[in-house]
Each structure stands twice: as structure tokens, then as C-alpha cells.
């Protein structure tokens, strides 16, 4: 059985937090550059120009891209032949977040309790999703998820009779309602099927997918293309200032569901799409 020490895990998480906080991924930068070329509204173009300048400045100066450095969302794929040694895996992940946020001069946004609202001071705990997979590796994917866009996310238990048209309507309405509140251009992650909870998990998983990568199921990929067009017909545009680029990508993740159900969840991701991944 292969061993991975918790120190290696904490240090990988810390580095990913710091790097994601100041630099978008290449796929995201390319998507913004394409948006700048495609956008027809002058004000929308101006907004994207500012976002590109902001991205360059953040990377050059080490000042976070956005002041909301987000909740650290971690997807951990633990190989069933991988043995974590030296401590607890969840604690190692939280230690990484704690160190990374402090070292990167990043804002702590997590509260001890939703009701008494006292800040934990170090942006822990992370929200961690575990998956046990074959193999002896530990794959860690992280995203720093901003609150403004998270707040505009929605879930619906549609009726089977609502069908694909109902799904499309719900996604487009969610994007239109989110508008400037969620900092467009957006990447709405869409979870389709499963149960109430599974659909929202799928939606979060969808935003982890690189921009430009379609769902492997050709029918779902077609729906992704169609939804992108529909979302961009809302007129919201960059920053809600009007235009044809409201969304950069509309990734869908799918799971089987109950005969009575058609769950759909939309997890809105803003342009501060800050992902990293590592295999240990």
C-alpha cells in the first residue's frame, strides 16, 4: 500500500490556495480573451478588458484577483490502495487552507456558525467532497468559491413532465436572475438527475471541469451548447452591463434518478473561477 504523508497534503493545498488566489487557470483566461473578442456591447467589452487587466495585475503583484477569496472547496479522490499517514486527511486539508490563506494575504470569510456569525479567522473549515476510487494515488482538486455567485445558485425538483424544456427554462431563469449580482461572465455548473442533494453536488462538480471540455455524452454535450446560446440571449452581458457574453461555459454533470423525479441544480460560478489540482 502506497503511503502519502499529511505534510505533503497540507503543503500541496497551501500552494494551490495561494496560486489560485492570484492567477486564473489558462482555460479561464482564454475564455475571457475570447469573450473580449466576441462581445459586441462596448460597455460589456470594457468590463471584460478590466477583468483581463485585473487578472494580469493580480498575478504580477500577488494581490488576490478578488477580495472574496472564497470557500475552499476540495474534491478528494482517494485511491483505495493509498494510505494517508501522519494524521487525519481532513485536518491536513484544513491545515493547508489555513497556511495558504495566511501566506497569500487572502481574506478569511468562513464563519463558525451561520447564526452567531463569528469569523473563524483562517478561512477554515474547507468544504470537502470525498470519493474513493481504484488505484494508489490521492487526487486533490480545489476551487476557491466566491460567495456572491454561490448565493445566486438554485435547485429545483422539476416534474418529469417538465422535460428538457423545463430544465432549459430553469437554467436560463437562474442565470438571468443572477445578473450582475453574481459577477458575470459566469460559468453556471449544472447538475441533472440524482437526488436533491446529489444534483447540487453534480452542479459543483461541473464547475470543476475546464472551460471548453464537453460532457462525454453527445446528447448532453448538445444540451450544453444549446444552453450556452440561450443563456447568452438573456442580454445580461458582462457585469450585467448588457451584451452577448453572459456565460462562458455551461457544463452539465448527469446521474441516474428516481422514476418520479427530475432534479436540476445550477451552481453559479463567477469569472473568478479559481481552480487547481494535484496528484500525490
Amino acid at each position: 500500500m502506497r503511503e502519502v504523508h499529511v505534510d505533503a497534503i497540507a503543503s500541496a493545498i497551501s500552494e494551490m490556495c495561494q496560486s489560485a488566489g492570484v492567477a486564473l487557470t489558462d482555460d479561464m483566461l482564454q475564455a475571457l480573451e475570447k469573450a473580449y473578442r466576441d462581445e459586441q456591447s462596448p460597455l460589456g467589452r470594457h468590463a471584460i478588458r478590466i477583468l483581463l487587466d485585473n487578472a494580469r495585475l493580480a498575478t504580477a503583484t500577488g494581490v488576490p484577483y478578488c477580495q472574496d477569496c472564497g470557500v475552499a472547496i476540495v474534491f478528494a479522490r482517494v485511491g483505495q490502495d493509498c494510505h494517508v499517514v501522519g494524521g487525519a486527511l481532513s485536518e491536513a486539508i484544513n491545515e493547508g487552507v489555513r497556511c495558504g490563506f495566511a501566506a497569500g494575504y487572502m481574506r478569511a470569510s468562513m464563519l463558525q456558525s451561520p447564526l452567531d456569525r463569528r469569523n473563524t479567522g483562517d478561512n477554515t473549515p474547507a468544504v470537502i467532497h470525498y470519493d474513493v476510487v481504484p488505484g494508489d494515488r490521492l487526487e486533490l482538486a480545489i476551487t476557491l468559491k466566491g460567495g456572491g455567485s454561490e448565493n445566486m445558485s438554485r435547485q429545483a425538483m422539476l416534474k418529469p413532465a417538465d422535460g428538457v424544456e423545463g430544465v432549459k427554462r430553469f437554467v436560463v431563469e437562474t442565470v438571468a436572475n443572477a445578473g450582475p449580482n453574481a459577477c458575470p461572465p459566469l460559468v453556471p455548473g449544472i447538475g441533472l438527475g440524482g437526488t436533491f442533494d446529489k444534483s447540487t453536488y453534480l452542479a459543483k462538480k461541473a464547475i470543476m471541469r475546464p472551460i471548453g471540455e464537453f460532457n462525454p455524452d453527445p446528447a448532453i454535450a448538445e444540451l450544453e451548447k444549446e444552453l450556452l446560446v440561450l443563456c447568452n440571449e438573456t442580454g445580461v452581458g458582462p457585469q450585467g452591463l448588457g451584451g452577448i457574453v453572459t456565460c462562458l461555459w455551461t457544463p452539465i454533470e448527469v446521474y441516474p434518478c428516481h422514476v418520479t423525479a427530475l432534479p436540476v441544480a445550477v451552481n453559479i460560478q463567477c469569472h473568478a473561477n479559481r481552480r487547481r489540482e494535484v496528484i500525490l
Binding site: 459586441q40 456591447s41 430553469f170 436560463v172 438573456t234 442580454g235 450585467g240 448588457g242
Partner: peptide, 12 residues
């Protein structure tokens, strides 16, 4: 600002 660019009332 959005009105001139709106092409749909909201979905499918």
C-alpha cells in the same frame, strides 16, 4: 443597458 441585447424572455 441589458434591454437592447435581450433576445429571450427566459429559456427554452
Amino acid at each position: 443597458a441589458q434591454e437592447p441585447w435581450r433576445r429571450t424572455g427566459g429559456g427554452g
